[in-house]
Design a protein around this nucleic acid. Structure first.
Lengths: 105, 105
DNA sequence: CGGCCATGCAACCATTGGGTTGCACACCCG
DNA sequence: CGGGTGTGCAACCCAATGGTTGCATGGCCG
Protein backbone atom coordinates (compact mmCIF):
# COMPACT_ATOMS: atom_id res chain seq x y z
CA UNK A 1 0.00 0.00 0.00
CA UNK A 2 2.42 2.64 1.20
CA UNK A 3 4.55 1.73 -1.79
CA UNK A 4 3.93 5.19 -3.27
CA UNK A 5 7.12 6.96 -4.27
CA UNK A 6 9.30 4.72 -2.18
CA UNK A 7 10.82 2.46 -4.82
CA UNK A 8 12.77 5.15 -6.73
CA UNK A 9 14.45 6.13 -3.48
CA UNK A 10 15.68 2.59 -3.00
CA UNK A 11 16.78 2.45 -6.61
CA UNK A 12 18.78 5.61 -5.95
CA UNK A 13 20.30 4.07 -2.83
CA UNK A 14 21.19 0.88 -4.67
CA UNK A 15 24.39 2.25 -6.13
CA UNK A 16 27.79 2.28 -4.47
CA UNK A 17 28.99 5.48 -6.17
CA UNK A 18 25.89 7.31 -5.02
CA UNK A 19 26.67 6.31 -1.47
CA UNK A 20 30.20 7.69 -1.75
CA UNK A 21 28.69 10.92 -2.97
CA UNK A 22 26.25 11.01 -0.09
CA UNK A 23 29.05 10.17 2.32
CA UNK A 24 31.18 12.99 0.93
CA UNK A 25 28.27 15.40 1.20
CA UNK A 26 27.81 14.17 4.74
CA UNK A 27 31.04 15.98 5.60
CA UNK A 28 29.79 19.25 4.22
CA UNK A 29 28.06 20.64 1.15
CA UNK A 30 30.01 20.43 -2.09
CA UNK A 31 29.70 21.07 -5.81
CA UNK A 32 29.88 18.45 -8.54
CA UNK A 33 33.35 19.63 -9.48
CA UNK A 34 34.56 19.49 -5.89
CA UNK A 35 33.21 15.96 -5.56
CA UNK A 36 34.90 14.97 -8.81
CA UNK A 37 38.13 15.95 -7.10
CA UNK A 38 37.89 13.36 -4.38
CA UNK A 39 36.00 10.59 -6.16
CA UNK A 40 37.35 8.38 -8.96
CA UNK A 41 34.68 9.41 -11.47
CA UNK A 42 34.09 12.23 -13.88
CA UNK A 43 32.32 15.44 -12.95
CA UNK A 44 29.57 14.64 -15.46
CA UNK A 45 28.96 11.23 -13.94
CA UNK A 46 28.64 12.87 -10.55
CA UNK A 47 26.28 15.44 -12.00
CA UNK A 48 24.00 12.65 -13.22
CA UNK A 49 24.08 10.98 -9.83
CA UNK A 50 23.27 14.26 -8.11
CA UNK A 51 20.33 14.67 -10.49
CA UNK A 52 18.79 11.33 -9.52
CA UNK A 53 19.51 11.95 -5.84
CA UNK A 54 17.82 15.32 -6.11
CA UNK A 55 14.85 13.82 -7.92
CA UNK A 56 14.11 11.47 -5.05
CA UNK A 57 14.67 14.23 -2.53
CA UNK A 58 17.82 12.87 -0.92
CA UNK A 59 19.81 15.96 -1.83
CA UNK A 60 19.17 19.64 -2.39
CA UNK A 61 20.98 22.16 -4.63
CA UNK A 62 22.25 25.43 -3.18
CA UNK A 63 23.59 28.14 -5.48
CA UNK A 64 26.74 29.76 -4.12
CA UNK A 65 28.14 32.35 -6.49
CA UNK A 66 28.68 30.62 -9.79
CA UNK A 67 28.76 27.13 -8.40
CA UNK A 68 26.03 24.78 -7.25
CA UNK A 69 26.64 23.11 -3.93
CA UNK A 70 24.59 20.12 -2.84
CA UNK A 71 23.29 19.42 0.63
CA UNK A 72 22.32 15.96 1.85
CA UNK A 73 18.87 15.73 3.41
CA UNK A 74 19.09 13.27 6.27
CA UNK A 75 15.47 13.79 7.14
CA UNK A 76 14.36 12.17 3.90
CA UNK A 77 16.54 9.20 4.79
CA UNK A 78 14.95 8.95 8.20
CA UNK A 79 11.51 9.16 6.65
CA UNK A 80 12.29 6.39 4.22
CA UNK A 81 13.62 4.27 7.05
CA UNK A 82 10.41 4.70 9.00
CA UNK A 83 8.23 3.75 6.06
CA UNK A 84 10.38 0.72 5.37
CA UNK A 85 10.17 -0.43 8.94
CA UNK A 86 6.38 -0.05 8.87
CA UNK A 87 6.08 -2.29 5.83
CA UNK A 88 8.32 -4.94 7.36
CA UNK A 89 6.39 -4.89 10.60
CA UNK A 90 3.11 -5.26 8.72
CA UNK A 91 4.34 -8.33 6.87
CA UNK A 92 5.66 -9.87 10.04
CA UNK A 93 2.34 -9.31 11.75
CA UNK A 94 0.31 -10.80 8.93
CA UNK A 95 2.56 -13.81 8.53
CA UNK A 96 2.48 -14.46 12.25
CA UNK A 97 -1.30 -14.51 12.08
CA UNK A 98 -1.26 -16.90 9.14
CA UNK A 99 1.13 -19.17 10.96
CA UNK A 100 -1.13 -19.34 13.97
CA UNK A 101 -4.09 -20.28 11.81
CA UNK A 102 -2.05 -22.89 9.98
CA UNK A 103 -1.04 -24.45 13.27
CA UNK A 104 -4.67 -24.74 14.23
CA UNK A 105 -4.41 -22.66 17.38
CA UNK B 1 30.92 3.46 7.36
CA UNK B 2 28.08 1.04 7.94
CA UNK B 3 27.81 0.77 4.18
CA UNK B 4 28.80 -2.89 4.43
CA UNK B 5 26.33 -5.21 2.74
CA UNK B 6 23.59 -2.62 2.77
CA UNK B 7 23.71 -1.39 -0.81
CA UNK B 8 22.71 -4.67 -2.50
CA UNK B 9 19.61 -4.77 -0.33
CA UNK B 10 18.56 -1.36 -1.61
CA UNK B 11 19.35 -2.40 -5.15
CA UNK B 12 17.04 -5.38 -4.62
CA UNK B 13 14.35 -3.09 -3.24
CA UNK B 14 14.72 -0.69 -6.15
CA UNK B 15 12.50 -2.69 -8.48
CA UNK B 16 8.75 -2.48 -8.73
CA UNK B 17 8.24 -6.12 -9.73
CA UNK B 18 10.25 -7.26 -6.75
CA UNK B 19 7.95 -5.26 -4.50
CA UNK B 20 4.88 -6.93 -5.98
CA UNK B 21 6.51 -10.26 -5.28
CA UNK B 22 7.26 -9.26 -1.71
CA UNK B 23 3.73 -7.94 -1.31
CA UNK B 24 2.29 -11.19 -2.61
CA UNK B 25 4.51 -13.17 -0.25
CA UNK B 26 3.34 -10.89 2.52
CA UNK B 27 -0.05 -12.55 2.22
CA UNK B 28 1.43 -15.98 2.71
CA UNK B 29 4.27 -18.13 1.42
CA UNK B 30 4.10 -19.07 -2.24
CA UNK B 31 6.09 -20.83 -4.96
CA UNK B 32 7.45 -19.19 -8.10
CA UNK B 33 4.74 -20.87 -10.16
CA UNK B 34 2.00 -19.70 -7.83
CA UNK B 35 3.34 -16.14 -8.00
CA UNK B 36 3.48 -16.36 -11.79
CA UNK B 37 -0.25 -16.99 -11.62
CA UNK B 38 -1.10 -13.66 -10.07
CA UNK B 39 1.66 -11.47 -11.48
CA UNK B 40 2.00 -10.35 -15.12
CA UNK B 41 5.45 -11.90 -15.58
CA UNK B 42 6.83 -15.28 -16.42
CA UNK B 43 7.65 -17.89 -13.83
CA UNK B 44 11.31 -17.72 -14.83
CA UNK B 45 11.46 -13.98 -14.34
CA UNK B 46 9.99 -14.43 -10.88
CA UNK B 47 12.51 -17.16 -10.16
CA UNK B 48 15.32 -14.73 -10.95
CA UNK B 49 13.82 -12.08 -8.71
CA UNK B 50 13.42 -14.59 -5.90
CA UNK B 51 17.08 -15.49 -6.34
CA UNK B 52 18.25 -11.92 -5.83
CA UNK B 53 15.83 -11.42 -2.95
CA UNK B 54 17.15 -14.56 -1.33
CA UNK B 55 20.73 -13.47 -1.88
CA UNK B 56 20.23 -10.31 0.14
CA UNK B 57 18.29 -12.20 2.79
CA UNK B 58 14.88 -10.64 2.22
CA UNK B 59 13.32 -13.99 1.44
CA UNK B 60 13.83 -17.61 2.42
CA UNK B 61 13.08 -20.83 0.48
CA UNK B 62 11.00 -23.55 2.10
CA UNK B 63 10.68 -26.94 0.43
CA UNK B 64 7.11 -28.25 0.55
CA UNK B 65 6.74 -31.55 -1.22
CA UNK B 66 7.93 -31.06 -4.75
CA UNK B 67 7.59 -27.32 -4.74
CA UNK B 68 9.68 -24.51 -3.24
CA UNK B 69 7.70 -21.91 -1.33
CA UNK B 70 9.25 -18.61 -0.39
CA UNK B 71 8.81 -16.77 2.87
CA UNK B 72 9.37 -13.05 3.27
CA UNK B 73 11.69 -12.08 6.13
CA UNK B 74 10.32 -8.90 7.66
CA UNK B 75 13.05 -8.87 10.25
CA UNK B 76 15.68 -8.22 7.61
CA UNK B 77 13.60 -5.31 6.40
CA UNK B 78 13.38 -3.91 9.90
CA UNK B 79 17.12 -4.32 10.34
CA UNK B 80 17.82 -2.48 7.10
CA UNK B 81 15.46 0.29 8.18
CA UNK B 82 17.32 0.72 11.45
CA UNK B 83 20.71 0.90 9.79
CA UNK B 84 19.38 3.42 7.28
CA UNK B 85 17.98 5.59 9.99
CA UNK B 86 21.28 5.49 11.85
CA UNK B 87 23.18 6.73 8.80
CA UNK B 88 20.70 9.54 8.23
CA UNK B 89 20.85 10.61 11.83
CA UNK B 90 24.64 10.66 11.71
CA UNK B 91 24.68 12.93 8.66
CA UNK B 92 22.15 15.24 10.19
CA UNK B 93 24.20 15.48 13.35
CA UNK B 94 27.44 16.20 11.53
CA UNK B 95 25.88 18.77 9.23
CA UNK B 96 24.26 20.52 12.17
CA UNK B 97 27.68 20.78 13.78
CA UNK B 98 29.22 22.17 10.61
CA UNK B 99 26.45 24.69 10.30
CA UNK B 100 27.06 25.93 13.82
CA UNK B 101 30.75 26.39 13.12
CA UNK B 102 30.03 28.17 9.86
CA UNK B 103 27.75 30.57 11.66
CA UNK B 104 30.53 31.38 14.05
CA UNK B 105 28.63 30.45 17.19
C1' DC C 1 5.51 -46.95 -11.65
C1' DG C 2 4.44 -43.74 -15.16
C1' DG C 3 3.10 -39.40 -16.43
C1' DC C 4 2.38 -34.76 -14.91
C1' DC C 5 3.84 -30.64 -12.91
C1' DA C 6 7.05 -27.62 -10.83
C1' DT C 7 11.80 -26.44 -10.94
C1' DG C 8 16.41 -25.43 -13.05
C1' DC C 9 19.36 -24.07 -16.62
C1' DA C 10 20.77 -21.75 -20.91
C1' DA C 11 20.55 -18.79 -24.73
C1' DC C 12 18.96 -14.80 -26.34
C1' DC C 13 16.84 -9.90 -26.72
C1' DA C 14 16.00 -5.08 -25.55
C1' DT C 15 16.39 -1.57 -22.36
C1' DT C 16 18.35 0.79 -18.71
C1' DG C 17 22.01 2.93 -16.68
C1' DG C 18 26.68 4.17 -15.16
C1' DG C 19 30.48 6.08 -17.38
C1' DT C 20 33.15 8.73 -20.71
C1' DT C 21 34.58 12.46 -24.11
C1' DG C 22 33.57 16.74 -26.22
C1' DC C 23 31.64 21.05 -26.71
C1' DA C 24 28.90 25.20 -25.65
C1' DC C 25 27.75 28.57 -22.42
C1' DA C 26 27.59 31.50 -18.56
C1' DC C 27 29.44 33.79 -14.93
C1' DC C 28 32.37 35.81 -11.75
C1' DC C 29 37.23 37.59 -10.42
C1' DG C 30 41.08 39.95 -11.20
C1' DC D 1 36.35 43.18 -19.96
C1' DG D 2 38.53 39.04 -20.95
C1' DG D 3 39.78 34.51 -19.85
C1' DG D 4 39.56 30.76 -16.57
C1' DT D 5 36.49 28.08 -13.93
C1' DG D 6 32.13 25.68 -13.20
C1' DT D 7 27.79 24.04 -15.36
C1' DG D 8 24.88 22.10 -18.66
C1' DC D 9 23.83 19.37 -22.69
C1' DA D 10 24.44 15.65 -26.17
C1' DA D 11 26.22 11.70 -28.28
C1' DC D 12 28.15 7.59 -27.60
C1' DC D 13 29.91 2.99 -25.31
C1' DC D 14 29.52 -1.10 -22.78
C1' DA D 15 27.98 -3.85 -18.99
C1' DA D 16 24.20 -5.16 -16.22
C1' DT D 17 19.64 -6.55 -15.94
C1' DG D 18 14.63 -7.48 -16.46
C1' DG D 19 12.29 -10.25 -19.52
C1' DT D 20 11.27 -13.98 -22.76
C1' DT D 21 11.19 -18.79 -25.02
C1' DG D 22 12.68 -23.43 -24.97
C1' DC D 23 14.29 -27.53 -23.12
C1' DA D 24 15.95 -30.78 -19.67
C1' DT D 25 15.20 -32.75 -15.31
C1' DG D 26 13.41 -34.66 -11.40
C1' DG D 27 10.21 -35.81 -7.91
C1' DC D 28 5.42 -36.68 -6.27
C1' DC D 29 0.78 -38.35 -6.58
C1' DG D 30 -2.51 -41.14 -8.14
Amino acid sequence: MTTGTLVPVFAALGDETRWSILAALGEGDASASALAGRLPVTRQAIAKHLAVLQEVGLVEPVRVGREVRYRVLGSQLADTARRLEAVGAEWDRRLAAIKEIAEGL
